[in-house]
Amino acid sequence: MARPILEVKGLTTTLAGGTITILEDVSFGLQPGEVLGVVGESGSGKSMLALSVMGLLPKAVRRTAGRIVLDGEDLAALSPDRWRERRGSDLAMIFQEPMTALNPVMRVGDQVAEVLRRQGIPAKKARQETINLFRKVEIPSPEQRVRGYPHELSGGMRQRVMIAIALAANPKVLIADEPTTALDVTVQAQILDLLRKLQKERGLSLVFITHDLGVIAEIADRVLVLYAGRVAEIAPVRKIFDNPQHPYTRALLASIPEIDRPRGRLVTIEGAVPSIGAMPKGCRYASRCPFRRDICEQESPRLGLVSSDQAAACVQPFGFEKPQEEALA
């Protein structure tokens, strides 16, 4: 395998007090041109993971351990100012809420051009390039649209502007944090198609965050499953769907509503995620896991390789057999 463009090792973040961990020992790699899907329930720490990589953690949250290696350079070892210089050039991010992510009193074109200007592109050229980017993200009549304001645009169009801002950076790594969650269903599909197309065209290295495994299936090469701030499983997308190793991954799969599933059998995962202030000592999934044994609650299971490209954090991963639906019933 080539050297990963992004490698996160042992990332741990805590609430500023220090006792409550939000992310614990998160590690993964992203290959150039690869799409890594990050999936997990709301509150599992997906956004904190994205913001950690960007160096944009909220004040209340601190990174207490871990390396964030971008193209061979550990960002976590840089001064805040040097890390900032990576944003908008090597690193870019698309946020979940297009309605509030744009500056309401600045022309949308200027909000894109601003990124280009940072790279030393002269104003006139930046304006032209912004129009090109608007065309790239399929915003109709880009020449007029660049002069518009965010309130004149729909949610889907605003998210396209956000994508144009991200592309303007021409980043080595792009992080998309639930970019379609806040949109209407039909618009979701359009934005997802657009991102997939742009990723292919430009060979983007993309971390795609979602709580929706259905979306993962459409875009990801590999998948990281996050549970309560820990990596539960990481594997190529086919293995996640065909041969999941962590009981939580299985439960997630079973909860996808499928057209061919008999009506009324929509499975939800029983129980609730432990609250961040009261994480158990052992496996964080234990309170909901139908396979729990005594040893599960003694210490936190390490992320262990099940095969060369699949790892799960469970004391008794399933092995190589096909998942048994009955086991979940």
Binding site: L56, R84, R87, G88, F95, A101, L102, N103, Q111, I165
Partner: peptide
Amino acid sequence: NQDFIRTADAKGLT
């Protein structure tokens, strides 16, 4: 505290 300030931060602005 607004989201668009975080966007500006993500652009690497000073």
